[in-house]
Nucleic acid binder design. Sequence first.
DNA 1: TTTGAAATTGCAATCGATTGCGTAAAATAT
DNA 2: ATATTTTACGCAATCGATTGCAATTTCAAA
Lengths: 345, 345
Amino acid sequence: MKKVKRTTIYDIADKLGITASSVSRALNNSSQVNEKTKELIMKTADELNYKRNILASNLRKGQSKTIGVVVPRINQNFFSNVIAGIEEITYQKGYNLIICQSGEQHDKEIQCVNTLINQHVDCIVISVSADSYDYQHLQNVLDHGIQLIQFDRVAEELETLKVINDNVQASFEAMSHLIEGGYKRIGLLEGPQNLSIFKQRKEGYLKALQLYNIPVIEELIVENAWTKELGAQGTRKLLSLPHPPDAIFASTSDFSALGVLDVANAMGIKVPSELGICGYANESFSEITNPSITTIDQFSVYMGNTVANLFFQEIGNTDTTAKPKTISIKPELIIRGSTLKNGVH
Amino acid sequence: MKKVKRTTIYDIADKLGITASSVSRALNNSSQVNEKTKELIMKTADELNYKRNILASNLRKGQSKTIGVVVPRINQNFFSNVIAGIEEITYQKGYNLIICQSGEQHDKEIQCVNTLINQHVDCIVISVSADSYDYQHLQNVLDHGIQLIQFDRVAEELETLKVINDNVQASFEAMSHLIEGGYKRIGLLEGPQNLSIFKQRKEGYLKALQLYNIPVIEELIVENAWTKELGAQGTRKLLSLPHPPDAIFASTSDFSALGVLDVANAMGIKVPSELGICGYANESFSEITNPSITTIDQFSVYMGNTVANLFFQEIGNTDTTAKPKTISIKPELIIRGSTLKNGVH
DNA sequence: TTTGAAATTGCAATCGATTGCGTAAAATAT
DNA sequence: ATATTTTACGCAATCGATTGCAATTTCAAA
């Protein structure tokens, strides 16, 4: 790679026998510079293949026009969709995105956040990792005067902008659908309860049981079943109970639901007639399993859009007394074959 | 958002009654500064919650420690995996990733590339969009002395670093598998031939036919069938031929293969006994269809790792006479139910 | 105690773009 | 033709960190 000296505004200025100030102003389309010289400068800039050095510009202006995003994994459907949604909006506004993955590890999450603070990003967007136990690093972001937006998996105690799904409601609707469909004994595969989203989904589960006057049976609730394997494992446990459930709500993910389906198939248990299954997240595969899996769509790309729009909205907001907003997106229950006990739709 | 004055090396220097030079050196762990003062500086930096301003640092050093990535879509399995793979490596080295999506549009791709040049990124990693017709913008990257690495979908005529899959070989193996499994009349769903990857996959198809002395039948080859819908459409056409194929190689993607499967199911054609199906890309769903779909794994995360490692390897390379490297990753055929005509494995 | 080398620290320029302030030139008014 | 207002441009400081070179201090050897 040959080292190339890149052209600066000084090069342009020298060539035209003027000052860098004028060049800068011209390039920023300031009204302070004569139209004719402006054209001349533009033309020369083009000829010399000039590209503004954003580092210098941003240093001077004290901004970075950059947004940092921290997610557990980039290559997880939900997150890559949210990122795509953020990028759509930020790109138009000339903002850049720096992406980091925490790998679900608290330590790496802290590192990522610190890196982004170092970068002087204008905003940090984060969905916290599963094993996060404290939020000092997020407080730190605020202390640096950097905008912080949490989405989906949020630390509720922190007063920041938030974009979330209404997990309680979605979970409640899924359960109502199961109950009204004729399922009477519904098991729950739940996720790590330190994450509020999983707590809320459990809340919806309990709320539905209560409303329909169904007793809560502790042994039907399996903790920490949020991968395909753990879902399968939990299902085996549930189905070998003396009095097994006739439906399982895999509240953690469709992957978990897939584990349920696998085990049911392996044990010769018919879905949906003998066992109903409901997942969460509307992963692309949930549509093509056999039977297809009832699940909950989170509008992930839209969620990303919302996050970005929220940032741009707040950017001009100087009202320091305003309470940080929380935007809640209502997820949608997608009813499919795996919960149609009586074949109806 | 309150405006916070961030602490700089001058604040630290003032507090300790020394110069910013020493502070800078201490923070960079230079041997030029006394151990005791170094400790003192570190401590004070910590107390004042100092975070280095990377903008200033990079401006001075003439680098950005940033890599730009341009892909058609972030939220597409293959690409998000590659990005995850790149991030894994770059993160460790203290490099940041700026992500852009071209949305498969040539114009937006050009915009993205220019944005990244403006950002003075140290390297641009790109997989070109499907409707790219010329590569002036990529040449432009090289002219700016910025390292350019192409992956997967590459413009072959450009002399840059490349990381690709051996598509010909993979395609050839898939075809060999089909032929040896007893399929005799194999259709091809092909992608846009302006992308070399699709050209290569067709090449592998033709090579296999030739080797096994099977005539090439033009009507069995369907152009531009690279989504689920287009795949389904192509399949309908193929299966309604007077003499339809007994296997279809959806060389574009598993999505396309899924379209094939759907149509076959709808028409009551049994897979794999009456119709063999082979996809491409090993999407997660290909494992859970019924039957599961034989496909080709591209080792996408590993591909990302390779791209990043290649960059760091080249970074120190001052040999200007060296030809740009091309690294080819051998994909793997994953044999599943959809091609097991005789039930064997 | 003197001398010289080594270890520390300071000075000042630099990276490239932006911007407040001042001044010369041009345009308008008197 | 002179006074006054605009317009256009230059000067120089600034953003924060880095670094070559000079200056000072420290310490050991003579």
